[in-house]
């Protein structure tokens, strides 16, 4: 049996990234994910990788851009205000089709907000964030082990589609310690591709750009991106159901909040309420068709989030009975208690 290690979410995704072959980490300090830069600064040394504390989140994401250009596995991470600064770079990564992994350990916003856990960057992660027609694959782990598992696999998923993967967690998951099993170290030697920029020895020069002038050229490029997104939408969907078979009250929730809901489902069932939980693991692609089926015969759908109501919009769009959807949440760093969820849902 593999040894379990007790680590917080921030260390979990840092080590999982390294095990997944990431050798380039660029970042800037921000709470509540400061364990990452500190861990990476020494761990990258041990594995012969590069850690650089950039002058800003803007520089971090552009350094990731530079590393990704060469076919290396690169990542950055931050918390909400820092992720806002990265949106320009993420849009360029998307346009240039450069695989990269970005972790957002969400805190309360808007503005400087606070440093308490929140889920209020759902819209930013799922609906675009930066300018232009693009998508990110967004994983919302709800345990520290899932943080490890999804970060580990995110690099190969990013490369498969030449897309950017966001690991969307929150300050609670980032700080909370749980026992995890780390996977084996990947021996990653760099992508063999027909697009990476490595110097033109033995081949024709390559160009990676996001400027597409000329009539119809950008539209064609965007259509190509959309086709790729459609493929990812069909194959990368992930979700979890809990006691939904006979459910009359369906809770929907993502990330850490889904764990409170799981407990709430058990408590509701003890009170005789047939409750169940539908939890999207990928927020994009959103498992709307699956939710449609699960929600078809329920009497009540309650969406629980640590924000003012963001995923609930996708829930309403997905189900055949949107009038049955209600929202329960707390914002600005507030955490919904299990008892309040039970009270609201029963």
């Amino acid at each position: 049996m593999k040894n379990k290690e007790l680590v917080c979410g921030n260390i979990a995704f840092s080590e999982a990234a390294i095990r997944g072959g990431c050798r380039y980490y660029y970042g800037y300090p921000i709470t509540p994910q400061n364990e990452v830069t500190s861990y990476m600064s020494s761990r990258m040394d041990e594995v012969g990788g590069v850690f650089l504390q950039a002058e800003s989140e803007i520089a971090s994401i552009n350094m990731v851009f530079g590393a990704a250009l060469t076919g290396a596995r690169a990542m950055t991470s931050s918390s909400s205000p820092g992720i806002s600064l990265m949106q320009e770079g993420i849009s360029y990564l998307a346009a240039c089709e450069l695989p990269a992994v970005i972790a957002n350990v969400m805190r309360g916003g808007p503005g400087l907000g606070n440093i308490a856990p929140a889920q209020s960057d759902y819209f930013q992660a799922v609906k675009g964030g930066g300018h232009g027609d693009y998508r990110l694959i967004v994983y919302a782990p709800s345990t520290v082990q899932e943080v490890v598992d999804y970060t580990y696999k995110s690099f190969s998923v990013a490369e498969k589609y030449r897309m950017q993967v966001m690991i969307l967690m929150d300050g609670l998951l980032g700080q909370m310690m749980e026992p995890v099993v780390f996977p084996e170290m990947v021996e990653f030697k760099g992508i063999k591709s027909d697009w990476s920029i490595t110097g033109c020895k033995g081949r024709a020069p390559r160009l990676v750009r996001s400027l597409f002038l000329g009539r119809g050229v950008l539209e064609d490029h965007n259509k190509k991106l959309q086709e790729k997104y459609k493929k990812a939408e069909e194959t990368e969907l992930k979700y979890e159901t809990y006691k939904t078979e006979d459910a009359e009250v369906l809770l929907t929730s993502f990330g850490i909040c889904a764990r409170f809901c799981r407990k709430a489902v058990d408590l509701l069932r003890e009170k005789g309420v047939a409750a169940g939980l539908f939890r999207p693991v990928t927020l994009w692609p959103f498992p709307g068709d699956k939710l449609f089926k699960v929600a078809e015969n329920v009497k009540k759908i309650v969406c629980v989030e640590m924000n003012a109501g963001q995923m609930v919009e996708d829930v309403r769009l997905s189900v055949s009975n949107p009038e049955k959807v209600s929202f329960f949440g707390r914002t600005g760093g507030g955490i919904p208690s299990v008892s309040k969820i039970v009270e609201f849902a029963k």
Binding site: V50, L52, N62, V64, G66, T70, T198, G199, R209
Partner: peptide, 19 residues
């Protein structure tokens, strides 16, 4: 081989490449 950086970000992109 050439790439194109976002406005003003060329030194950061060059850093990522060179490292």
């Amino acid at each position: 081989d050439v790439t194109e950086a976002a406005h003003g970000r060329a030194p950061a992109v060059a850093t990522g490449i060179k490292r």
